[in-house]
């Protein structure tokens, strides 16, 4: 299947995503430049991490006005899968494709570390149940990753099972000690109401190769491939 990786000036996880999806997952992957409005034959869009347009003003706030913005919205509204990682999550919130926003970490410092994630809800695109996973180890690397939304929105997210990942301890406990940035309800990743757009702060593309310390990122990419074109899922992939 074909992954398209959106590149803004200031994006820096673009090549990491490309390598994870192509070298580790064996799929086709190509860059989609922010000035390019035509992306055909793309099955899934990845909005990677970085500091799009320098993230001056507010993370993702300028990317919202990018040349490609309405095309991303159109692609998502057609029901195609979009995964926004880190800055990509922030951009999806700014585009109103996902509710809420990402505030500065409560520690007021950047954090780069491994985190444990509990899969609190399965999702047909990004967190499929047949892989029998209940938790993942995936690193974070952000200064503004504290998910915030008003109470009503949070209640809806919880009720509609739109929260996919929550930060947890190595024992799977979701509590304030296992929350690296002060996110409400330990939220690390959510989907939109139709379940085809995922935003997550942790970086799955950084853990698709055992030499880097883990391969749990493959779970998410395997889920996407399985949902779009199961025949393309590599036999060698851990999650087949």
């Amino acid at each position: 299947m074909n992954f398209g990786i959106v590149v803004y000036p200031g994006t820096w996880s673009d090549s990491d995503c490309l390598i994870a999806v192509s070298d580790q997952m064996g799929q086709n992957a190509s860059y989609v430049w922010h000035k390019n409005r035509n992306f055909n034959n793309i099955d899934c869009l990845i909005l990677p991490g970085g500091f799009s347009y320098g993230d001056y003003l507010r993370p993702g706030a300028i990317a919202r006005f990018s040349n490609i913005a309405d095309k991303i919205i159109e692609f998502g509204n057609l029901g195609n899968p979009i995964i926004g990682i880190c800055n990509g999550f922030q951009i999806l919130c700014e585009l109103d494709l996902l509710p809420g926003t990402l505030l500065k970490n409560d520690v007021m410092e950047f954090r780069c570390q491994w985190t444990n994630l509990k899969i609190v809800n399965h999702n047909q695109f990004f967190a499929r149940s047949e892989f029998q996973k209940s938790s993942l180890q995936i690193p974070i690397s952000h200064g503004s990753g504290r998910y915030y939304a008003d109470k009503k929105t949070i209640n809806e997210l919880e009720k509609n099972q739109q929260i996919i990942f929550k930060y947890c301890s190595s024992m799977g406990e979701v509590n304030s000690k296992s929350n690296p940035n002060g996110s409400i309800n330990n939220i690390a990743g959510i989907v939109n109401s139709t379940g085809n757009i995922l935003g997550m702060m942790p970086h799955p593309e950084r853990c698709c190769d055992s030499i880097l310390g883990g391969e749990d990122g493959k779970y998410i990419f395997s889920s996407i491939i399985k949902s779009i074109d199961p025949s393309k899922l590599l036999k060698t992939s851990t999650y087949h």
Partner: peptide, 12 residues
Amino acid sequence: QQYDHQVLTNTV
């Protein structure tokens, strides 16, 4: 922990 030490996915 305040520095991104993993980007470019080469850090072993």
